[in-house]
């Protein structure tokens, strides 16, 4: 995985992960997207999403690291930070 991946590419791959995790090809995201905007996403289904993100981007996200993320933009930032890491 390219460690300097462009933010837009991260966003595209993240969208693929979300569509796959929630079995919904109709999901769309942008930086301001929050869990309530995405079919199926809530704090309890977050774990499955994080696992899929770890696998897709070959990164590790700590148990409590993703708890405080406010939106997809912050999630993308975290993924980029981890990839640069």
């Amino acid at each position: 995985m390219d460690k300097s991946m462009e933010r837009e590419n991260v966003s595209t791959l993240l969208l693929e992960v979300m569509q796959s995790v929630f079995f919904d090809p109709g999901i769309t995201i942008d930086d301001e997207t929050v869990a309530e905007d995405v079919n199926g996403w809530d704090s309890l289904s977050h774990v499955r999403l994080l696992l899929a993100i770890e696998k897709k981007f070959s990164i590790t996200i700590g148990p409590l690291e993703a708890d405080r993320l406010k939106n997809v933009g912050e999630l993308i930032d975290l993924i980029q930070k981890k990839m640069a890491g």
Partner: peptide, 14 residues
């Protein structure tokens, strides 16, 4: 406590 393992396909129900 939260324990996801027994209900791995949980999704928010709109």
């Amino acid at each position: 406590p939260v324990f996801h393992a027994l209900w791995p396909l949980h999704a928010h129900e709109k």
